[in-house]
Design a protein around this nucleic acid. Structure first.
Lengths: 324, 324
DNA sequence: CTGAAAGCGCTTACAG
DNA sequence: CTGAAAGCGCTTACAG
């Protein structure tokens, strides 16, 4: 198929050993400059590229980092995180590959890739983590179930997000909270803990539990949800994320209600559309850059066998705009 | 590190050949049922998983499909496409891996992964395509520069998108077109051809060329752009995508202008936020599901050495809402 | 300063 | 019905 190191050796009249030494710049081996030049020239001329597969088999590992996303629609937030992560890791010669949690089982994936590190933005089954580690793969993550307190894993508390939303609304004098979820079943992993946080915060504040509505991202669905909230006297809505919050705003608009006069609305993520909404949307930001940097550092520390970095103290932040 | 086929062979008292035959269900080899059971049991007990790397080296290929995204912020559109593609390919035992066009050079990537197929949602350099093909990798794509008419590649014309936007605006009686681009340099690859389409369509309609403004996704920046358009008598704006269009709407709102009364606005992508905007946004949809299915089919056809499927006839569609 | 040889873990003709 | 052996392409002790 391709040209191998044996071809380069033959073309430059040396052994494969020497080719390997020259091309890898193996330290501790001083090849004569003439030989070096001959090898380099031959490699160049033949268009030689080493087989990463053979190298991986020999070395037992690759320079790949596999990022596993949860099985839900990823938003701009995750895109940004991936961008930063790829940049940070590229400096260490690592390539980032992303799996979208769809298709074949995860086990097939990491076995096929033999990555150096698996970065999980989703929760892994404990057996899976064990199997990966046993295969010599580092496992790093931002998210595991709250029960699995693996010290190597840093989890942004989804509950805390919901809590912050309610605390902000309460500070604004709101007393009857609505929760806007989605009908997308894939989001349950994130939606449930956020709702739990909302519920807990309502209890702490001495309020009734949130009035839950799940909506599609369209105006009719949002309008129905708004109606159900109004019937119950809701004066503030915490939404699963900014997209849902935008739907809520659309529903309120359709009903002729004022924001925040009649109803306050708060989202999660601070997507670009949030600041462009009418009115601009108050939202909980997750400081993705900070998280990406932490993940990159954790990955690199794991690689170096160094102590894991300290997780960033507070990545959650309420961005106050005009909707509350 | 891990348990190998030799371990399984030893544990079950057979040769590695037999282990391989049993575990792969190699056709044309009839292993006695007793032996088969012994091997299976030993593999199970030892937790054996074949080394994908060794297999790849031996077979010369993997069951991986590498999707290369362009180096720009991917939106929900691409997410949906990836989801569909992964589902469609999983049925053929193929795993999808995504590269976000960041970090290390593409060449390192595909060499490291040795995928069966590379699916490009970005344009590849011709040498790169040649190198991949020479390495026995199939190359499939939705996008190549209009100059490279590779029959194996199906390109959604970015120019056509811009053209459709203008034709719609002209049909609505608009005569002075503004173009809303972005300051994000990563988007140039897509933005330029779309703008070229807008310019061409303006010429066809006997209009002056578009008045170009590039904006950030925030209200102040959008407001400045709106001002420049108004100074030039612009009565319709074609935006690079929906996000930019939302910014334009925000700028118009800030300026107290009516949409579409004073200025019509049209985006691209039909993201969920488009229908939730105030007013709901007219946009060009790219029929992502159709494209994903086509890509999956093209990938599978390439695998089977079959004739490539016919590209879908018209994936572009103007979704008319209230902003025009 | 450079080469012959072993071995990473698998699959697959080829023999029996 | 099953096994010994070669080989995928690389790297790296070990010898010279």
């Amino acid at each position: 198929m391709g040209v191998t190191s044996a071809d380069v050796a033959r073309a430059s009249g040396v052994s494969r050993t020497t080719v390997s030494y020259v091309l890898n710049g193996t330290p501790g081996t001083s090849i004569s400059d003439a030989t070096r030049q001959r090898v380099l020239a031959a490699a160049e001329r033949l268009g030689y590229a080493p087989s990463a597969t053979a190298r991986a088999l020999r070395r037992g590992t690759t320079d790949l980092v596999l990022v596993v996303l949860p099985h839900w629609p990823i938003g701009p937030v995750i895109d940004t995180l991936l961008d930063h992560l790829a940049d940070d890791l590229a400096e260490r010669g690592l390539s980032v590959l992303v799996h979208h949690g769809r298709g074949r089982p995860l086990g097939d994936l990491w076995r096929a890739v033999t990555p150096r590190t698996v970065v999980g933005l989703t929760a892994f089954a404990p057996e899976e983590v064990r199997a990966m580690r046993q295969a010599g793969i580092q496992v790093v993550g931002t998210r595991l179930d709250d029960e699995h307190h693996d010290p190597s894993v840093y989890a942004v508390s989804q509950q805390q997000i919901g809590r912050l939303q309610v605390e902000h609304l309460v500070a604004r004098g709101r007393r009857r909270i609505g929760w806007a979820g989605t009908t997308d079943a894939r989001l349950v992993e994130f939606a449930e803990p956020r709702l739990a946080g909302v519920t807990a915060a309502c209890a702490s504040a001495g309020l009734a539990g949130p009035l839950v509505a799940r909506l599609e991202l369209d105006v009719p669905s949002a309008t129905r949800a708004v109606q159900s909230w109004r019937d119950a006297g809701v004066d503030a809505v915490a939404a699963y994320n900014d997209e849902v919050a935008l739907a809520v705003l659309a529903g309120l608009r359709r009903r002729g209600l004022e924001v925040p006069g009649d109803v306050a609305v708060i989202g999660v993520d601070d997507v670009p559309a949030a600041r462009l909404a009418a009115p601009p949307l108050t939202t909980v930001s997750q400081s993705i850059e900070v998280q990406a940097l932490y993940l990159a550092r954790a990955t690199i520390a794991a690689l170096d066998g160094a102590v894991p970095p300290t997780p960033p103290p507070d990545v959650l932040d309420v961005v106050v705009r005009s909707s509350t």
